[in-house]
Nucleic acid binder design. Structure first.
Lengths: 245, 245
DNA sequence: CGGGCCCTTTGATTTTGATCAAGTCGCCGA
DNA sequence: TCGGCGACTTGATCAAAATCAAAGGGCCCG
């Protein structure tokens, strides 16, 4: 008890934590959480915060990356395109996810902000140095990669085997459970993606997405205002429609 | 030059390498490659080789895993099922891939041999101990996870945006490039998957897969014997049909 | 050698979602 | 206040793949 209080007080004072970091919403969940105060200071000296407006590309498919980033707030779309322009969103990232593909220079995907997004960027060289110094950091990055792998595989089941109706419900479920990080599941939220983005995420067309959303509304699974604001009266019901056991 | 030869000679003699490992085809590519002779000996003492016939389940969805494994030869299907039985193969693993989801007890997927497969199993506890002792091992596992993530995302593009024809061609391309590890791309091979498996991998039905294979044969993109043996006269042509730029 | 079984192919028909084509709605700027 | 534009919805039609149905074909086993 005594110790817990001590610890807490210290954390509140943030005596050893760089000022930029102490106020950072992503610090505990993000990759920085494993670093010692010294290392955090080192990292923070080389890091820069950026605000990105919706639609702005953070890194393009085939470009070389020289930085990694932590998402502080917002939503980032990761997508791939075929030569003829067909596009697929292969992942969504929310705060406090880590962005960037470690140990490779060339990006195999495009990262683009879906809504107003704040990120904290680190040069590749600094991250790689810290990885070699702090084994906990690589572990954290490894866990993030495994989490993304699990999510990607779940989504493959959705893409390959679910109906349009189930796909749209699955998408809404993902948003409800990820949009408010640290607050658990939201039963009311603004969609961070346009219909076109949703279509690209689900492997459908805009029209089909729109029709299925209309159907979910008529079936009282969701309520919609201004085509972007969604409320979910029963999450169980949404999950059921999404085919989630 | 001198040094290279020295190194090679030592490697051929395998003076410090446990006997079971020295003959192992997967050692260099597999996760064991980063271990010191001591650690390799340690691991080999606790490892067991198993042969798995096609269709045998290695680990079921929802079961708890207590071991990891290296694939020595063969092909393993990773799949997920919906409550109503719809199934999706979310990944194929070939030698010398590492199987198992580190840092979690419960498996989110089913792993099943597609053909006769040999694996080398390690208890979870030993791997976890070695990870804490040898940072190179976690790095190797991390890279394997990142590789699988890249592959999963590539496949999401296939599942979400390609036509049946392109999907089947993409599948054949994957097999051609992975079936003979260390030998590069094969332009003649036996399919490790039945039509039903291919359908589950591509998010299609058996009938559609069969029709598309017939079409590829008629278009001279592939030749087929006994419905399982495939030869590819021009890999470029196959890639083109698969929509791979 | 024949029969049965499983895997695969092929054919006919149906269904789901795509495509084509108008609208509607909300918002911004003149 | 009025256009105009972009995002979204709705409707009609079309096509790709699913479903339903029936054969082949290879292989094992009696």
């Amino acid at each position: 008890m005594q110790i817990v209080n001590e610890h807490r007080r210290k954390d509140i004072h943030n005596s050893d934590i760089p000022t930029v970091c102490s106020a950072c919403e992503a610090r505990h969940g993000g990759v920085c959480g494993t670093l010692s105060p010294d290392q955090l200071l080192d990292l923070s000296r080389h890091s820069t915060r950026r605000s990105i407006e919706p639609g702005r590309e953070v890194i393009g498919q085939g470009e070389t990356t020289d930085s990694y980033a932590n998402i502080i707030s917002g939503v980032v779309k990761l997508s791939k395109v075929l030569a003829d322009g067909r596009q697929q969103i292969v992942g969504l990232q929310f705060a406090p996810d880590f962005m960037g593909r470690p140990f490779t220079r060339e990006s195999a995907l495009t990262a683009e902000a879906a809504v107003d997004t704040d990120i904290c960027c680190f040069p590749r060289t600094v991250i790689e140095r810290l990885v070699s110094e702090a084994p906990g950091l690589e572990h954290r990055l490894h866990e993030q990669a495994l989490k993304e792998l699990d999510e990607a595989r779940d989504w493959m089941l959705t893409l390959g085997r679910k109906t349009a109706q189930e796909k749209v419900a699955s998408f809404l479920y993902i948003i409800a459970t990820h949009i408010a990080p640290e607050k658990g599941t939201a039963n009311e939220f603004d969609l961070p993606l346009s219909r076109a983005d949703i279509a690209d995420y689900l492997g459908l067309t805009i029209e089909t997405v729109s029709r299925q959303i209309t159907k979910l509304r008529k079936d009282n699974v969701i309520r919609i205002e201004n085509s972007r604001h969604v409320s979910v009266p029963s999450l169980d019901r949404l999950m059921h429609v999404a085919g989630i056991d």
